[in-house]
Design a protein around this nucleic acid. Sequence first.
DNA 1: GCCCGGTTGTTGATTTTTCAACAGAGAGCT
DNA 2: AGCTCTCTGTTGAAAAATCAACAACCGGGC
Lengths: 185, 185
Amino acid sequence: MDRRIQKSRQAIMNAFMRLMSEKDFESMTVNQIAEEANVNRGTVYLHFTDKYDLLDQCMEVQINQLLRNCMPEEGLVHLTSKTALQRTFEYLEQHASFYSIMLTSKGSAVFRNQMETLFRQSLSEHLDSINLDRKLNKDITVQFLSSAGVGVLEWWITHSMPYPASVMVEQFWNLLDRIQLQMFE
Amino acid sequence: MDRRIQKSRQAIMNAFMRLMSEKDFESMTVNQIAEEANVNRGTVYLHFTDKYDLLDQCMEVQINQLLRNCMPEEGLVHLTSKTALQRTFEYLEQHASFYSIMLTSKGSAVFRNQMETLFRQSLSEHLDSINLDRKLNKDITVQFLSSAGVGVLEWWITHSMPYPASVMVEQFWNLLDRIQLQMFE
DNA sequence: GCCCGGTTGTTGATTTTTCAACAGAGAGCT
DNA sequence: AGCTCTCTGTTGAAAAATCAACAACCGGGC
């Protein structure tokens, strides 16, 4: 990628995030973002459809960084592995202000969607490795648990992380373990 | 000035100054500066003839900032005024590392030239306001005192500011006062 | 209702930056 | 001596960013 593109996108996203910590998303204008980023307003539109797209893309970049940080090595993030879970919570704790702002001021679905996808994959594989009670529908079970997982995660962030990451991991793990015991055939 | 030019020049100068605090000027390459600034090498050449020109321009920018900071208000800097002298020394003290590096690692004459010009102006006006002994040639006297002033200033910077700014101001002022008494008719 | 100011999204012409490539110079090695 | 590598200074074509301008829309005030 041409370095000019990289620089412009970076400047715009950084400016956006700075403004997000000072302003209400709805009242923020593209002109303000452009000025903060020291780029022409047209340049913002070259890279982003509108400020909603900017928010979404910002979230995606950040989540990709989260994932890259939480990966044990080359491979997928398994949120059903305690280590990966630990890393995820700790990373989120360290970037608390960003996620807090992004999740509270505007209902971007990017975070939820991406985290749910992750939970779904991990849980799907996990349930494949145990003997799921035949009376339970796998898809519904996976969705149930994913939603619960993401719900807790979002709650923790939007409520200013009332407990340290370590406590969250412990509780999460505990719940998963106990629920799992009820699913054996 | 087009914002792209501003951004490029700023990035290049900042990168240069960062590298100056880590490397020997002579061994520094334009390619290193371009990489540090995240611009194409050709861009460096668009704005600066070579690294010597870059050093000179950097010095000029910084000295202009020094002057802007030391001006009492709209007007000229009078280095024969104690207030202006105080401000100058204090500013230099606060930017010690920059000036120290710039004056020690490469013999750029920009600082010396500009400061001498300043001293000359101030002293010239100052001597106009007193009755200079007729036996003294004004131009020679002005040059004598300017050189002395700049010499002390440079010595202070290149010797890591052995005394606080306040001491330097006091001594400077004292010397100027005593020497002046010897010049009356 | 109308008017005004601010914002959005877009367009076209221009400028600046990028990139790759080239020729030349200097230093070090065989 | 020749060869290689690195750096310098430059060139030309392409791409990205800039700027000014325009039309349309929205919200607030009279």
